[in-house]
């Protein structure tokens, strides 16, 4: 039986920026990877612009800057498998699951509030 007071996950990282434009996405992902490398249960929620981080077909920048696509492809190796996207943002950008690099679960606002509630530590980037 699940104890209502005890969060299910250790760390939820909320990513709200797209790739390349700022380092928020990369530095947020770094926090998630470090958490997982230290044996924590980590989940990712892509909100707003952050859903664009999951688009297929991303490349490096003009100066060869790596971008975050390759990091996302490594998530499974770090056992980060709980991936969520904000339904409202997917709609706003006209995206479907098939447009994304990775398998995600699409959440409405109520489900987002519940997910945030279920994690011991939530970091927003």
């Amino acid at each position: 039986m699940r104890d209502e007071q005890t969060p299910d996950g250790d760390l939820l990282v909320i990513l709200r920026h797209g790739p390349h434009g700022t380092s928020w996405l990369r530095e947020g992902l770094d926090a998630a990877l470090v958490g997982a490398a230290f044996g924590r249960e980590v989940a990712l929620l892509f909100m707003g612009e952050g859903v664009l981080a999951l688009l297929e077909g991303q490349g490096p920048g003009a100066l060869g800057q790596k971008g975050t696509g390759p990091t996302l492809e490594m998530l499974e190796m770090y056992d980060i498998e709980a991936l969520y996207v904000e339904g409202r943002a997917m709609e706003r950008y006209g995206l479907e699951q098939q447009d994304l690099l990775l398998e995600t679960r699409c959440l409405d606002a109520a489900a987002i509030a519940e997910l945030v509630d279920r994690n011991a530590l939530v970091l927003t980037f």
Binding site: L11, D30, A31, V34, G35, F38, R40, A120, L121
Partner: peptide, 20 residues
């Protein structure tokens, strides 16, 4: 220090407050 320290702090302190 390493970023792992942040995750430890977040999980071990009573309160972590972010300013960004």
């Amino acid at each position: 220090t390493g970023l792992g320290q942040l995750v430890d702090l977040g999980l071990n302190c009573d309160r972590l407050v972010t300013f960004a």
